[in-house]
Design a protein around this nucleic acid. Structure first.
Lengths: 156, 156
DNA sequence: GTCTGTTTTGAATATTTATTCATAAATCTT
DNA sequence: AAGATTTATGAATAAATATTCAAAACAGAC
């Protein structure tokens, strides 16, 4: 219909000026302003507007508009990893390990480690060509190597 | 139970690192990591964490952590303590700890730690979303938590 | 106009999420 | 320790929300 756009505007306005806790409430307000639609349509409208139902401090819920001017997130898309090439060496000390990489690759490899070796590695800190890993004190160094080897073939 | 806190941290971590579309999905991941709970409890957890189910660009939904400053208010007192919001989790290994934060906040929180927990923490190294803490070997983990909790309320 | 493809919508339904109610576990107070 | 109070939880259910499926409204192209 022609008034979908106006309706979306109205929805944004209602949501931003009052505290709406359910689609049914919003539906009633819209109805009182002359917009006839069903919950199904409203659900789709809210999805399109990227409206979100957020828990409030008072223990209830309210709909909120998405952040304005938020930057689009960039997704690499290719899904390929340079880990194999960029990896240079690994060494252990206590419950830590240091990985050397080719310059510039430390953070991307660290990101993969964070993703894929959560059981073995508590966390990482990456510089330019060095990654510091904090290992779980319950796992062996062999287990760490094994976990990393699934996406860093050169490690062996 | 006592593991509610760890569970909440785990939830934050899962949500911030992967794309979860329903509580059931999240429930499965939690289950695979050893957390047994029902959807009812998860719903309450998410409400407490103010997690929100947001429509994505791809036409689906995903859970996201609350944006800093959206509904959360700054703590009273001498300054801003945004640390609470940006903090995600803490884990220990040996005389070290790893703190995960929302991307970009690691260094500011690390700065606060350096300032305010000098007795417990020898030093920190911060990346984008991870802080490495070297702990004083004479203090307990509980003491560290206690010291940090004075300016990272969410830690408890 | 008619044809064809796209968009919008409602009714019914499926799915998802929140809450109620009861119980158990933890915490506090004597 | 016992009793009282708060907190955490699951099972069942209620409530809310998303989607399917079919139909209608629309927009162009001819």
């Amino acid at each position: 219909m022609k008034n979908k756009l106006k309706r979306l505007q109205e929805i944004k306005e209602i949501i931003s000026t009052s505290s709406i806790g359910s689609q049914e409430d919003l539906l009633n307000i819209l109805s009182s302003r002359g917009y006839e639609l069903t919950q199904a349509t409203l659900s789709r409208d809210l999805k399109q507007l990227k409206v979100v139902k957020s828990p409030t401090a008072g223990g209830a819920y309210k709909y909120i508009l998405p952040e304005r001017g938020s930057t689009q997130k960039t997704t690499t898309g290719d899904g390929y990893s340079y880990a194999g090439n960029a990896f240079i060496s690994i060494a252990f000390s206590g419950f830590m390990a240091v990985i050397k990489t080719r310059p510039g690759y430390a953070s991307s490899i660290a990101y993969e480690i964070d993703e894929k070796a959560q059981n073995e590695v508590l966390g990482t800190v990456a510089g330019e060509d060095t990654i510091l890993l904090v290992l779980d004190e319950k796992v062996s160094r062999e287990a760490v190597i094994k976990a990393l080897s699934s996406f860093i073939p050169n490690i062996l």
